[in-house]
Simulated assay, not measured.
Amino acid sequence: MAWTDIFNLAKRVAKGEGKDRKFGLAFNHYNSDPYWDLQTYAAPLQLKMFDKKAEKMSVDTALWKKVWNDFADLYQSKIIPSPADLNLGGGDHIKNSVIITDPFQSDIFMNGRVAMTIAGYDYVSQLTQARDAAAKNPKIPSVDWDVVTMPQFTEVPGTGGNIMLNNLMAINANAQNGEDAWDFIAFNNSKEWARLKSRSSYEMVSRKSFLKPKDGNTYNIAAFYSLKPVPPQDPVIDRLYEEKPNLYQIRQLAQQLILDVLEKKRSVDEALETWQTQGDVLLQQIKTNPNGPLDGTGTYDGGGKTN
């Protein structure tokens, strides 16, 4: 489905008020951080905060505005839970002077507070464990679930979600036992090892023939690999963050501004214009002083405006 389809569906199923509110969608089944949720949502678009020299901001654009407006509408309509919303439900309670702990208090999908969530392949094992535990104890929640592909942007069809590659191997050019090392790598990429590794509940092997639902489940496992993954960040940008640690302040400025938007202290246009303008000031300071303290000009003051 497209993101617009998911948003419309989320709006249809969301209902209730206060601690009884049932939300339509969550970008994380444990907590809510608007800035990082926004990054998850916008990742396939590969929007750029600044140029490849980290000298000029590039956020006051139509596409950035669309992404922020989409997100603000979902939060303000309580389709997606905010951190404050999540604090209204779950948690420990006291009965006869004894603290009773809800083991699923922090999982908003498993405890029924959200209809749809985004999670990785490892979450399948957690849902399976909850199902097995619920069969023995009716007080433990269990949900009826399945898996679909990540929603897609019409601007980037066929792309969604992320893939992380673990346990990559290489042979040192000066290795004394190069042939033995090659044999070991060949074994780790063989069908025999893939067959054994495919039993893992937390990782998927790269050989599709060994990918099947486990533990009696019948979920749509193909959803995890049907789309192209979001390309990794430009290595030039990665290197800039290494060379100029102060660049994190550009992100920190955005974290405050998105909260202003969600709390209706600013419009999206005002927030992105501020991010663009004050970000440019910060970038010039960072260019001069990439590691040390800055003079404070262009930093957020916590009162709905920037210095």
Rank of each mutant, 00 (worst) to 15 (best):
V205A: 08
V205S: 02
V205F: 07
V205Q: 02
S206W: 10
S206Q: 10
R207D: 07
R207V: 00
R207M: 14
K208F: 09
K208R: 13
S209G: 10
S209M: 15
F210R: 00
F210P: 07
F210S: 02
F210C: 04
L211T: 06
L211F: 01
L211V: 13
L211E: 06
K212L: 11
P213L: 08
P213E: 09
K214V: 10
D215W: 14
G216W: 05
G216N: 02
G216Q: 01
N217D: 15
N217R: 13
N217L: 13
N217C: 12
N217M: 14
N217V: 09
T218L: 10
T218P: 02
N220D: 11
N220G: 00
I221V: 12
I221L: 14
I221G: 05
A223I: 08
A223M: 05
A223F: 05
F224T: 07
F224M: 06
F224A: 07
Y225Q: 04
Y225P: 00
S226K: 12
S226T: 12
S226E: 12
S226Y: 05
S226R: 08
L227M: 02
L227G: 03
V230P: 03
V230A: 07
V230N: 10
V230K: 00
P231W: 13
P231G: 13
P231S: 14
P232S: 13
P232R: 11
P232T: 10
Q233C: 01
Q233K: 10
D234P: 05
D234Y: 09
D234R: 11
D234W: 09
P235N: 01
P235V: 01
V236L: 01
V236I: 11
I237C: 03
I237P: 00
D238Y: 03
D238G: 13
D238L: 11
R239L: 11
R239H: 14
L240Q: 11
Y241M: 03
E243R: 12
E243M: 10
E243T: 14
K244Q: 15
K244N: 14
P245S: 05
P245H: 03
P245T: 03
N246G: 07
N246Y: 05
N246A: 06
N246T: 02
N246I: 02
L247V: 05
L247N: 04
L247I: 09
Y248K: 15
Y248S: 14
Y248R: 14
Q249L: 15
Q249Y: 02
I250M: 07
I250C: 00
I250A: 00
R251C: 13
R251G: 13
R251E: 15
Q252L: 08
Q252W: 04
L253Q: 07
Q255D: 11
Q255N: 08
Q255I: 10
Q256H: 06
Q256I: 00
